[in-house]
Design a protein around this nucleic acid. Structure first.
Length: 582
RNA sequence: CGGGGUGUGGCGUAGUUGGCAACGCACGUGCUUUGGGAGCACGAGAUCGUCGGUUCGAGUCCGACCACCCCGACCA
């Protein structure tokens, strides 16, 4: 490909308002352009990287027996009503009407359609197990797009679906996908951590997320370096040491003026924060007021809380009016004497005697509050965030917290979607059984961005060979003055064109100064930079620079042709850096 | 949706008490230059986010709206 005709443009300056390296570099180097918030065009360079990532994913899916297919982007709403998700999912599912007034949706994922196809096509246990997958555009009207390709509203996802006779079969398929993911991310050059995770809108029985550690990651991971425990904080359950047992004391009201926070309250009463209980007030999508009670020194985890009350569309903070309407006082609130609210108590609070809690009266708290005696919880379950240093639930060593970007996930779905679609098969026993499903997603563009996050330097992108859009970047210096330079450059370019699609090289044939060409070559990030110039020819051929290591050597034209033809294997055989330095 | 911020040629920005919309880069033409973001000359390119208001006069002041970015609640 000749750079003079490539549909792209590099930016000399960093775009304003852009923070993450992958976002900044993909824009500056001309791989992507935004069209709207969370909506991007892939320019030719971006498309080629995207295709390579897709191909790696495809090969690993095929390796475990996945069958590639393609399902529609637009679905009749009835399909989503049948599974219950039409109403269970909030604004991120875009609903609209077709010309005949029928309700339609833009697909966020394809479990429903797979269920329908299974009901249509699978009759016998002999057809199972099997897995299908596709690469398809998803539209999710996210509340907030951010960070370039990391979090967008329109994106291509590889979503795979396993279909098994029973739970034991699902376990096997789930493990196959797990292994495929490990290989996929390894080939992409991504270091991932697999964490157990929340099942979210999938509503399955078990889920695991593959995370790339990144300070800008949107998830908080709870990791144990001692035993390898790894979980998303949304599901990490810490066994906090229970407070020392003591008999319940009589409840008494104390004046605590101006103590609307736990910190001020604990200081005022001269007690540790762990001897207090605090209340958080949230409202579920169906309008229920949820009062969450956790120990004062801990934080409420909203995902755990939402799961505890079955709030499928999430929770929003309650207003002062809503809290007061339920008989509670913001800043001094507790479930004591409250009404019309769902009370969720963290299990640690339930085991902690004689806490200080709000008296639902401005400037007053109760001492010696005991769950069960002073108020009756509706749900008692873990709803708090793990903290750095908390004991690992497996081995007890202190855990660490890290941020991660989710690059893939695997879900055990069970029979939710096959039940909704009536997808059954006739078993060996002559009876009908529901097909047991699993669901497995990888966001392609997000993986491209994560590769850049992990493979760049101050000069630009440094593509791993397996995902680079071109095998090499050819810089010709003085080609318009020196016919020999032009000849050699043209010849190398032609060798690449003839060697196959992924062996093409990017040929900078522009009439630009050397500085501009080198700077752009480093910004664009091909693994090899080939320089042809009167100087390199005098030195014996072509200067070969390894973008990652900076090692530079002059090789004969024939050797470079072999490099271009040979792929990464042949490139590795070349003793890069062993030749004369220039 | 809550909080914060920004909207001025393609990109990055300046624009004072309201008074001809400016600079760098990029772009076009010509000449020179050619191993690390070249030089000179000429040139094209902006309804100052949108709508409304104040004013003799608005990029600038006021109001509303919109878009985008960043921080929170959701997900690949």
């Amino acid at each position: 490909m000749r750079l003079s005709h490539l549909f792209f443009s590099t930016l000399r300056d960093d775009p304003a308002d852009v923070e993450m390296p992958s976002h900044r570099l993909l824009l500056r180097a001309g791989y992507i352009r935004p069209l709207g918030s969370g909506i991007y065009s892939l320019l030719p360079l971006g498309k080629r990287v995207n295709d390579r990532v897709e191909q790696i994913i495809r090969e690993e899916q095929d390796r475990i027996g996945g069958q590639e297919m393609e399902m529609p982007v637009v679905h009749p709403a009835d399909v989503w009503r049948a599974s219950g998700r039409y109403d269970a999912i909030g604004q991120e599912l875009t609903r609209f009407k077709d010309r005949n007034g029928r309700d339609m949706v833009l697909a966020m994922t394809h479990e429903e359609v797979v269920g329908i196809l299974l009901a249509d096509l699978v009759k016998s246990y002999r057809q199972l197990p099997m897995q299908v997958y596709h690469f398809q555009t998803k539209w999710r009207d996210e509340p907030r797009a951010r960070a370039g390709l990391i979090r967008v509203r329109e994106f291509v996802m590889k979503d795979a679906y396993s279909c098994d006779r029973d739970v034991a079969g699902l376990d096997v398929s789930y493990q196959l996908q797990n292994d495929a993911y490990v290989r996929t991310f390894e080939r992409l050059g991504l270091k991932t951590v697999a964490v157990s995770s929340d099942v979210g809108i999938m509503g399955g029985t078990e889920a695991r997320e593959f995370m790339v550690l990144n300070p800008a990651g949107e998830d908080t991971l709870v990791l144990c370096e001692a035993c390898g425990y790894a979980a998303n904080r949304q599901v990490a359950h810490i066994e906090h040491p229970a407070a020392a047992a003591e008999p319940p004391l009589p409840r008494e009201e104390v004046a605590t003026p101006g103590t609307t926070t736990i910190a001020t309250l604990a200081r005022f009463l001269d007690i540790p924060e762990s001897k207090t209980a605090k209340a958080a007030f949230l409202v579920a999508g169906d309008g229920r007021l949820v009062t969450a009670i956790v120990r004062g020194d801990l934080e409420v985890n909203e995902t755990k809380l939402a799961n505890a009350v079955g709030a499928t569309t999430g929770l929003r903070p309650a207003t002062v009016e809503e809290i007061k309407a339920a008989g509670m006082e913001p800043g001094y609130g507790s479930p004591i004497g409250a009404h019309d609210t769902v009370v969720v108590v963290d299990d640690l609070v339930a085991r902690s005697p004689n806490l200080v809690a709000g008296a639902n009266r401005e400037g007053h708290h109760f001492r010696n509050v005991n769950v069960g005696r002073d108020f009756e919880p509706d749900v008692v379950v873990d709803i708090v965030n793990a903290r750095e240093g908390d004991p690992c639930p497996v081995c007890g060593q202190p855990v660490i917290l890290r941020n991660g970007i989710e690059v893939g996930n695997i879900f055990k779905l069970g029979t939710k979607f096959s039940d909704a679609a009536g997808a059954t098969y006739l078993g060996e026993d002559g009876r009908e059984h529901p097909i047991v499903m699993g669901s497995y997603g990888i966001g392609v563009g997000r993986n491209v961005a994560c590769v850049v996050e992990d493979h760049h330097d101050e000069k630009g992108i440094v593509w791993p060979e397996e995902v680079a859009p071109y095998a090499a970047h050819l810089v010709a210096l003085g080609a318009n003055r020196d016919p020999q330079v032009a000849d050699v450059a043209e010849r190398l370019h032609a060798v690449g064109e003839a060697a196959g699609y992924w062996r093409h090289i990017l040929y900078d044939d522009r009439d630009e100064s050397p500085g501009v060409k080198f700077t752009d070559a480093e910004l664009l990030g091909m693994p090899w930079i080939l320089t042809v110039s009167p100087r390199s020819l005098a030195a014996g051929g072509v200067e070969v620079t390894n973008r990652a290591t900076g090692e530079r050597s002059t090789r004969s034209i024939e050797e470079v042709e072999a490099l271009i033809r040979g792929g990464s294997g042949a490139a590795a055989e070349l003793p890069m850096g062993a030749g004369p330095r220039s």
